[in-house]
Design a protein around this nucleic acid. Structure first.
Length: 566
RNA sequence: GCCCCCGUAGCUCAGUGGCCAGAGCAGCGGCCUUCUAAGCCGACGGUCGCAGGUUCGAAUCCUGCCGGGGGUGCCA
């Protein structure tokens, strides 16, 4: 990344200035280079002179020399700045900024480099092959995914995509909570619905799942098994219907998630932790370490010694059932110790914030550095219809499913909308508004820019014109240069999104990029029949191709389609 | 009570120390014989919840307060 290269150059300049005696010796500061917001402040900027003016003057005073201003320090740094191909000049700006300008010629050449290297041009190697698991969605498998799950799916999937493109080896996992009380209730509701299909006068359990989808599940069982299951011995009912129901729900989840182009590598069963001895092993380890104790008939995990504070966690409930903390501990033991992930990212809704705070420090019980477990919290999605809130919970029975919303607004628009908010922001999603505004949705603007570039390239081919890197130096007009600059910003955006695990940088950048492209499109005619314009046309075609590739790349990072025509 | 998140233009939201605060949408004024007008150009629009503090510099960091949401030992 240019940003990093610049930081290195500035550091070299500082070291050299100190070595040559232009500046007194001071401890090396952290160099930060930013992109200024305004025009005329360069492509990059650093406030280093302002940052070091104090230590510099202290050092000068000790040597009995007179004080320097930030501007004087900046002047020295610029003088000592090593040359670089991408850099045209560095300018001093009051009260002590150094602004860097990219070389227009170098910029123009990047159009060729981007096309030649393809997406590899943008790929980063932040991860250096480290194994990271992104676990997301993981909604209870007791019904269809509601729209809140769609946000989890969008965030998790895009994080996975970002990490993949940044040199990590990524596994996407869905944690299936296929044990515990809610699973039991689910199985019994299904059983009753099944019986009802044959006219039996039975009620679903009082705390059961009232939603109509349960009837659909029962019908699926009926379609396969007819009435044969009515004769099932009562003691076999829960296990059998749990198994049948789970299979149906998982199939449905997979199909629904596929609508959003979300796919998992592994579907990890919670129950398997108990079947394969992982839980027993974790219990033994913690027990041996003295991390477990009994109180009020329950087994407690001494979380306080790892997390701090004085609160411990119920490990095995007084009814003998392991609690969620126990499952989470066993599950993460499996992730780190048995499967050996270097880094694990769990994507959770904000209502799990307490657990999110307590689980990572608890990893110390396994000798695992808590920094290897990152929990990404996102706020909930509130659905509205015509300004009125619609409940999306499963328990109320009447839920707005992810599938419904996707069918109404489309996967691309839904993804864009869900991604464009920062994780911490609550989302108000008005379905009526979303449908009404779908034509003004930024997602179409971005895709339109891509379709237009595809169209130009098609027309060029028909006219026998090909992109060429022979005269890229002709790409000097402001719109062309602005487009090149914007494209080169992509790696920085990706790096920032990865660093902060914040996918929302992507949609904002994508909109920016599309806007810059469309301005170029409006101001710089690409195809020309004038033979004298051939060199410029070919250079611009190269730029169009590079822009198309960049647009399609950022769209793919967001899991969105890049249409060739609209 | 304590803890976490949010409060920025009419609306939806970006912007986590840098030089005069941004975008989309809505509204206003221009632009279709030229590569897709799902577009372009221009103008309008803000006490960055409030009050202090730290800093050369604060929407951004700290403290307090107000408003909204969430969490808080046997649901996950």
């Amino acid at each position: 990344m240019l940003q990093n290269q610049l930081e290195t150059l500035i550091l070299q300049a500082l070291k050299k200035a100190m070595k040559k005696g232009d500046l007194p010796k001071i401890p090396l500061p952290e160099i930060t280079v930013t992109r200024p917001r305004r025009e005329g402040q360069g492509d990059y900027s650093t406030a280093l002179p302002l940052q070091i003016v104090k230590p510099v003057n202290i050092a000068l005073k000790e040597k009995g020399e007179s004080k320097r201003s930030p501007m004087q320090i900046g002047e020295v740094l610029i003088k000592r700045l090593p040359p670089a191909a991408f850099l045209e000049r560095a300018e001093l700006a009051p009260p002590g900024f150094i602004n860097f300008y990219l070389s227009p010629g170098w910029l123009a050449q990047q159009a060729g480099a981007i096309v030649q290297q393809g997406p590899a041009y943008y790929r980063l190697n932040l991860g250096q092959g480290r194994k990271v698991q992104v676990e997301f969605v993981s909604a209870n498998p007791t019904g269809p995914l509601h729209f809140g799950g769609a946000r989890n799916a969008a965030i998790g999937d895009v994080l996975a995509r970002l990490l993949e493109h940044s040199g990590y080896q990524v596994q996407r996992e869905y944690y299936v909570n296929d044990r515990g009380a809610q699973m039991q209730t689910f199985a019994m509701t299904l059983w009753r619905r099944y019986q009802q299909l044959f006219g039996l006068d039975v009620e679903i359990p009082p705390d059961g799942y009232p939603g109509a989808y349960m009837i659909d599940y029962a019908k699926k069982i009926q379609a396969t098994y007819g009435d044969t299951l009515l004769a099932l011995p009562e003691d076999q009912v829960p296990a059998r219907f749990r198994e049948l129901g789970l299979a149906i729900v998982l199939d449905e989840l997979k199909a629904d998630l596929a609508l959003m182009d979300v796919h998992f590598d592994t579907w990890f069963s919670e129950q398997s932790l108990y079947d394969d001895g992982t839980f027993a092993r974790v219990f033994a380890i913690l027990s041996e370490q003295g991390d477990l104790y009994e109180k009020d008939g329950a087994v407690w995990f001494r979380a306080s010694q790892y997390v701090g504070g004085n609160r411990d966690e119920v490990f095995v409930r007084s009814n003998g059932e392991p609690g969620y903390f126990a499952s989470d501990m066993a599950y993460h033991y499996h992730k780190f110790i048995i499967r050996g992930f270097d880094w694990v990212i769990d994507v959770w809704a904000v209502d799990h914030q307490n657990q999110a705070k307590r689980l990572p420090p608890s990893m110390k019980a396994f000798g695992v550095d808590p920094a290897r477990l990152t929990i990404v919290l996102y706020d909930l999605v509130t659905l509205k219809r015509g300004g009125k809130e619609v409940k999306i919970s499963k328990r109320s029975g009447d839920i707005i499913t992810m599938r419904e919303v996707l069918e109404e607004v489309g996967a691309d628009a839904a993804r864009y909308f869900l991604l464009s908010h920062s994780n911490e922001a609550r989302i108000d999603f008005d379905l009526d508004l979303a449908v009404a505004q779908s034509n003004e949705n930024p997602v179409y603007y971005i895709q339109y820019a891509h379709a237009r570039s595809a169209s130009i390239l098609r027309k060029a081919r028909e006219a026998g014109l090909e992109p060429s890197a022979a005269h890229l130096d002709l790409l000097t007009c402001p719109e062309e240069q602005a487009l090149l600059r914007k494209m080169l910003q992509l790696p920085e955006v990706v790096a920032q999104a990865v660093e902060r695990l914040a996918p929302h940088y992507l949609p904002h950048y994508a909109l920016d990029l599309a806007k810059t492209y469309t301005q170029f499109y409006g101001h710089c005619r690409v195809l020309s029949k004038d033979p004298e314009q051939k060199d410029l046309t070919q250079a611009r075609l190269m730029l169009v191709q590079a822009a198309k590739l960049t647009l399609s790349y950022v769209l793919s990072l967001m899991g969105m389609t890049a249409p060739e025509s609209m």
